[in-house]
C-alpha cells in the first residue's frame, strides 16, 4: 500500500473548518432573518433577538478566518489556459468521464471559480453587514445607503449559499474528497485521477505513463 499524499496541512484544515462552521451558523441565522419560511431557525440560536445579536459576530469570525484561508489558497486558484478548456468540457465532468478532460493542477476550474466567488462574496457581506449593523454602525450611515447595503448583503449571501451547496455536493460526489479536508491526505489514485498535474508536482511521477498522453 502506497503512503498517502498530504493535500492539506493541519492548519489549512482547521482554518477551512472554522470558516465552514461559521458559514453554517451565519447562514442559518441569516436565512432566519431573510425569509419568514426560515424564521423558526431562530430557535436554534435562542430566539429572534439572540439570532439578530449573534449573526454579525459569527460573520466577523467567518470573514476573518476566510481572509487567512484565501491567503493560503490564492496562488493555487489563479486561472490558467487549461482551466477554460476544462470548463468547455463540463458535460464530461458532470458525467464522470474524467478521462476526456485536460490535465489539471491542484484545483479544477470549478473549484477555482468557487474560490473567486468567495473572494467577492465574503468582503461584500462583511462591508455591507457592518453598514446595517444596528448595534454599532448603522446610525452613522444614511438610510439609502443602509437599504442598498441590505440588498447587496442578501444578494451576496444567496450567491454564497448557492455556491457552497455546489461545493458541498461536489465533495460528496467526488469520493474521498471530504477525507482530504478532514485528515489532510489523499490516495495516489485519487490524486492521479482528479489532479494529475498536482500529483506529478508532489510525487515527481507522471500521472500517465509515457506513450499514453
Amino acid at each position: 500500500m502506497k503512503p498517502l499524499i498530504q493535500r492539506y496541512s493541519d492548519s489549512d484544515r482547521i482554518n477551512h473548518w472554522i470558516v465552514a462552521i461559521a458559514f453554517v451558523l451565519a447562514g442559518l441565522s441569516g436565512l432566519a432573518m431573510f425569509h419568514p419560511a426560515f424564521f423558526s431557525l431562530t430557535g436554534l440560536f435562542g430566539g429572534g433577538a439572540w439570532t439578530r445579536t449573534l449573526h454579525p459576530y459569527i460573520g466577523i469570525v467567518m470573514f476573518t478566518a476566510f481572509v487567512s484561508m484565501a491567503k493560503r489558497f490564492w496562488k493555487h486558484n489563479v486561472m490558467v489556459p487549461v482551466d477554460y478548456e476544462w470548463l468547455k468540457l463540463l458535460p464530461d465532468v458532470l458525467t464522470n468521464r474524467e478521462d476526456r478532460l485536460p490535465k489539471i493542477g491542484k484545483y479544477n476550474a470549478g473549484q477555482k471559480l468557487l474560490f473567486w466567488m468567495l473572494v467577492v462574496a465574503l468582503p461584500t457581506l462583511f462591508v455591507t453587514g457592518l453598514i446595517f449593523w444596528r448595534a454599532w454602525f448603522a446610525e452613522y450611515f444614511p438610510i439609502p445607503v443602509i437599504r442598498l447595503a441590505a440588498l447587496l448583503h442578501a444578494v451576496a449571501a444567496a450567491t454564497l449559499i448557492t455556491g457552497i451547496l455546489v461545493h458541498i455536493y461536489a465533495a460528496i460526489w467526488i469520493k474521498w474528497t471530504v477525507g482530504a479536508m478532514i485528515r489532510g491526505s489523499v490516495t495516489h489514485k485519487w490524486a492521479k485521477a482528479h489532479h494529475p498535474l498536482w500529483y506529478r508536482e508532489v510525487t515527481g511521477q507522471p500521472a500517465t505513463p509515457p506513450g499514453q498522453e
Binding site: M33, T42, G47, G48, A49, T51, R52, T53, F132, R134, A135, A138, I143, I146, R147, A150
Partner: peptide, 8 residues
C-alpha cells in the same frame, strides 16, 4: 428582534 430593518 431589534434588527432595524423597519428604519430602512
Amino acid at each position: 428582534i431589534g434588527c432595524g430593518y423597519c428604519v430602512a
